[in-house]
Amino acid sequence: MAKNQSEVSGIFTAGSKSKPSAAKPKNPFTHPLLLGSIFPLLLVVVWEVLSRLEVFPAYQLPAPSVILGTIAGMAEDGTLWGHVFITSYRVLMGFLLGTAAAVVLGSLVGFYKHAEALFDPLIQAFRSIPSLAWVPLFILWMGIGEPSKIAMIAVGVFFPVYLNIVSGIGGVDRKLIEVGKMYGLNMFQLVRRIILPASLPSFLVGLRSGLGLGWMFVVAAELMGASQGLGYLLVVGQNTLAPETIIASIVLFAVIGKLSDWILKKLETRTLHWQDRAAKS
């Protein structure tokens, strides 16, 4: 009965149904941006006050204003942009490289049984090696320059993307593939018109966790030896007993890491708007 009712109302309200967000009144006090800033702001204020009261010793935990001052100082003398740029560049290159490798291998393993038998055991074996263990070897092979760092990050990005592509392709609904077959699609068309769009959600999940790991690995790579970059700032801060430099670097990592994830998130909501997901109340 309920189904019939929704059928009838579905037909008559179909026009308005297409824009569901228009009707909902927006409460300015529950805007997600506002809600999300409450605790960070509170934390910063408490931290600043406690620092001014000298509860924390300044040589261990400087006040937020001091950290901001450090960042502003670096921005003024121009060094900040170099650090941010080189770190972002490493992550981006590693991310692209790792993703490209994962797409190629993941698609092969996802589509072909024989490719799975051939590659998957080896890939799974490599996966069980903690990726940071590769660092010394990569430095030995490729030197201390960019290639070893980018390779490092690519390794970190590769696994989550690969795993999600394989499971995404494996999880495509057989029923939808049958629809394609009924319309006489060949293998290539099936991949393009059904398998790729159906496994896109899983692929995007892989991209986001891959990017997260990319940021993790850039720190490791830059700690090992770099002359520029946010990870290098961490080392400098430690060696010059300057906690404000370390925390400034951490803050910058947080900001650009979040920014890059936000870009992927946007991409996700744009390409996956068709997904039937439960809305939170």
Binding site: N4, E7, I11, A14, K17, H273, W274, Q275, D276
Partner: peptide, 18 residues
């Protein structure tokens, strides 16, 4: 099939009958 005007809806917005 009586669905003119619903071209731009996505399957998640349809009832079972539609």
């Amino acid at each position: 099939v009586g669905l003119a005007g619903n071209e731009i809806l996505y399957p998640k917005q349809l009832s079972g009958g539609m």
